[in-house]
Simulated scan of single mutants.
Amino acid sequence: MSDIERKHTNARMSKIVRHGDLVYLCGQTASGGTNASADITAQTQETLARVDALLTEAGSDRARILSATLYLRDINDFAAMNAVWESWIAPGTAPARTTVEARLASESLLFEVTVIAALA
């Protein structure tokens, strides 16, 4: 298993897993306790900033995202979330993407994303 690298690991998960030329991030959200009153726009911005930081740490960046799964507490937030997403993703670098409505781990969370990216 020496070709698998895990970072920020606890009993349940690793925030970053690198294998071969790929990096996998666990589900990222806004900070639930401190951002409980934030709307979908603020939560999406904070979450994507966390993705940026983890991808940088792993040796990748948002332009190298291959696949993303987006989870919305309320599908009615789709347009507002997309406005943030579309300003975050550079033209010509849009990954394969799925968006679903889902119950998230905390009532205050409105958005979560998981990504798979290529290493730089």
Rank of each mutant, 00 (worst) to 15 (best):
W85Q: 06
N35R: 10
H19W: 15
N82Q: 11
D39Y: 08
D21M: 00
L22G: 00
N76Q: 11
V115Y: 08
A42S: 01
S14M: 04
L70W: 06
L25Y: 03
T41R: 03
N35W: 08
N35H: 11
G20F: 13
A30R: 00
W88N: 09
W85Y: 13
L109C: 01
A83G: 10
V115K: 13
V23K: 01
Q43S: 05
S108G: 01
S60F: 05
S67W: 15
L72W: 02
V113A: 08
P95L: 10
D39L: 03
R62L: 05
L54Y: 08
T114C: 05
A53I: 02
S108N: 13
T29M: 07
D39R: 09
E112C: 14
F78M: 04
E112L: 10
A102W: 13
A49L: 04
R97H: 10
S106H: 15
T34R: 09
P91E: 11
V23I: 00
T114I: 02
W85E: 12
S106A: 12
Q43R: 02
E107F: 00
Y71A: 09
H8R: 09
T47V: 00
A80F: 11
R73A: 08
D74E: 03
T56P: 06
L25K: 02
A117N: 03
A68G: 01
D74P: 00
S14F: 13
R97E: 13
P95A: 07
D74C: 11
Q45F: 03
F111S: 08
M81F: 13
S87G: 13
G20N: 11
R103A: 15
P95Q: 10
L54K: 07
V84R: 02
A105W: 02
Y71L: 05
R62W: 09
D74H: 13
S60M: 05
S60K: 08
V23D: 08
A58M: 03
R18S: 10
S37N: 06
R64G: 02
Y71R: 12
T29Q: 13
R97I: 11
A30K: 09
L109H: 07
A94W: 01
T47N: 08
L70D: 15
L104K: 10
I89V: 15
R64E: 09
A102Q: 14
A58E: 03
A42Y: 04
W88C: 03
R103T: 14
D61S: 11
E107V: 06
L22H: 05
V100W: 09
D61E: 08
A30W: 05
D77C: 10
F111W: 07
D52R: 11
T56R: 11
Y24I: 08
L66D: 10
A11C: 13
A11D: 15
L66Q: 12
A117Q: 12
C26M: 05
A53E: 14
T44S: 12
A68Y: 00
D52I: 01
T47Y: 06
